[in-house]
Design a protein around this nucleic acid. Structure first.
Lengths: 338, 338
DNA sequence: GATTAGCACTCGGCACCGTTGACTGCTAAG
DNA sequence: CTTAGCAGTCAACGGTGCCGAGTGCTAATC
């Protein structure tokens, strides 16, 4: 274990990070003195920077360049140096106001959350609508689309709606409503597992399996609903300027599977979660960081919103913003938006 | 108007395009002779190439480079030179087989169509689920989510499901099912316009307007459902290798509005539609081409699938592939998949 | 008249190179 | 512990010259 940082070292690290995040170029000792620490000489700062580098907080691209924060440096920053920033009153009001506009529409919530985050951060965004840990049936509908084809619509406890077409052998359509009513009574508030248990000793197991499957689907259904927006912002980042650097990252972000893996731990946790560079489980995102926030009730109905960017991302803005958007979604989900 | 092309000029143009699409580098007269026209000398080909250039079919990046097809050249190619390529039997079977796997699930159809196209073409893909020109109500559901909050679920004639939360003043929930039943009877097969007319002379206009709005939504709802996938492939294209070229394009493709504009004409038409480079209405896509296919019944229920890439795209593969995928979706939509 | 060989010409790309300037690390003095 | 001073390092930059790919033209040939 290294020595703890002196107050001045902490300050210098903080300055370097905040400078580098903005300029995207290595920070020199001169720059630190000029902009932040005018009472010491650049030589002093150089000594401190060398110490910080030994501690693993900074990197040195080459001899005649300034310093760049390392993943460890960023981690230290978000844990000890950043403080807990908040949005300003007016910013909070602006965000809230936008959500007021779409109060009723679940699908729009998550869309808007993505839009707010990505336009404000100028970075890609992931947003997952509220999904239930264990889905229970709230309502079932059977609608005849054409002779022999029935649309099964399942509404889950969390308000997600899923549908699937199935074919049936020529049954009189009058039965359909009655059948739906019957199933609704029988399986109200049941989970996929429950339904499967009952289905075992049932004659018409086919449609029940389908219903159970649709409920299942929601559990692992983040993939379907998981949406990433603002990928174009990645192309604007100087570290990913060339196509060959950019392509694997965008490809990874487009694939729902890897994102799912990225978000997996979140469904247990609560609050804001930050993963920086190498900490990432996903290989291709080794030069990226994510700031994620959960909303809803962990283990029950919950979702995730967050931003993704290069490790050089303005954590001090991302964290409070994600925090606040998650908070608003939380309240929306509780139906208590004032 | 220029002279019509001689057969040999046509052949050379065709060769140059097919070569350039694969190699992405200007094609020299020597290359044409070597690979395609061994019975004439390079000087002859040069003369023909000069003529083609005068006709506007080719471009000449600089004096010591080969020729590159122009937009006019590509247009000529797809109209007269390409012929009507088809997928091989085995390719068709492969595609069909994949669709068999997900026969029941509407949402999966369009997803799969996108996956098939983008993985086969290695290019971005747009895919719009079937939307109705005029949506009619097939079924309505009212589900109480929590006291005072009701989820309105609308199933349209084309099988799209849309939902929205509304708040109501403390009404006994027993009425809710009856109310839904009542509304279902009253508005079965009605369009948004119809409902609005009736709503005018009705006491409880709020919920009716909501229902009408959800039906409206589907009309302009392409935006919500419009999905573009495989953006990462754009980063792999040599013409968009640098971030500053790539960014405006990806940004444009991510914005549903501009895509909608791009697809607008399609909802009237039928068959495969090709737009090349400058022909595009969208400014930022001046160096891109799209190959789009419609499925469904034009003017009624229809959707669009297609690929987007640099003008240098393998039209001879894109066209039959899009054609076939659209054809399969067509049949799926008719419920006649064998 | 169409084709072709031959040749001069053009121009982008690349490697090379010295210069510049931005920073650092070190040392020795304060 | 701090600081001034200085030598050392290295990326970036602009210039130069060469190479080679590929053309356009011309004159000879079929």
């Amino acid at each position: 274990m290294e020595e703890a940082l002196t107050p001045r070292q902490s300050r210098i690290l903080k300055h370097i990070i905040e400078e580098y995040v903005v300029t995207a170029t290595p920070v020199s000792s001169e720059a630190v003195v000029r902009r932040y620490e005018p009472h010491v000489s650049s030589a002093t700062v150089r000594n401190e920077m060398a110490t910080l580098q030994d501690g693993g907080f900074l990197q040195h691209p080459h001899a005649s360049a300034g310093r760049v924060p390392s993943d460890v440096g960023y981690r230290h920053y978000v844990q000890y140096l950043m403080g807990d920033a908040h949005l300003s009153q007016t910013e909070e009001r602006t965000v809230l106001h936008q959500f007021h506009q779409v109060e009723g529409d679940i699908a729009e919530w998550i869309h808007l959350a993505a839009a707010v985050l990505s336009s404000s951060m100028q970075m890609p965004v992931v947003a997952i609508p509220p999904v239930a840990h264990v889905s229970r049936l709230r309502r079932l509908d059977l609608v005849e689309m054409s002779p022999g084809t029935v649309l099964v619509v399942v509404i889950t406890w969390s308000g997600t709606v899923r549908q699937q077409l199935i074919r049936v052998e020529g049954e009189p359509s009058t039965t359909l409503n009655q059948l739906a009513e019957h199933l609704n009574e029988a399986f109200w508030e049941q989970s996929a597992a429950d339904i499967r248990v009952i289905a075992a000793g049932w004659s018409d197991a086919g449609i029940l399996e389908m219903i159970a499957h649709l409920l299942d689907d929601e559990d692992r259904g983040q993939a379907a609903n998981l949406r990433i927006e603002g990928l174009s912002y990645m192309a604007g980042q100087p570290e990913f300027g060339t196509g060959d650097r950019l392509q694997p990252i965008v490809e990874t972000l487009e694939r729902p599977r890897t994102l799912e893996a990225l978000l997996e731990p979140l469904f247990q946790a609560h609050g804001v979660y930050i993963s920086i560079g190498q900490e990432q489980p996903v290989e291709a995102l080794r030069e990226c960081s994510v700031v994620l926030g959960t909303y809803g009730r962990p283990g029950d109905i919950s979702g995730v919103v967050g931003v993704i960017g290069p490790t050089r991302l303005p954590y001090w803005r991302a964290v409070p913003l994600v925090e606040y958007v998650a908070y608003v979604l939380d309240r929306l989900l509780e139906g208590t938006l004032v």
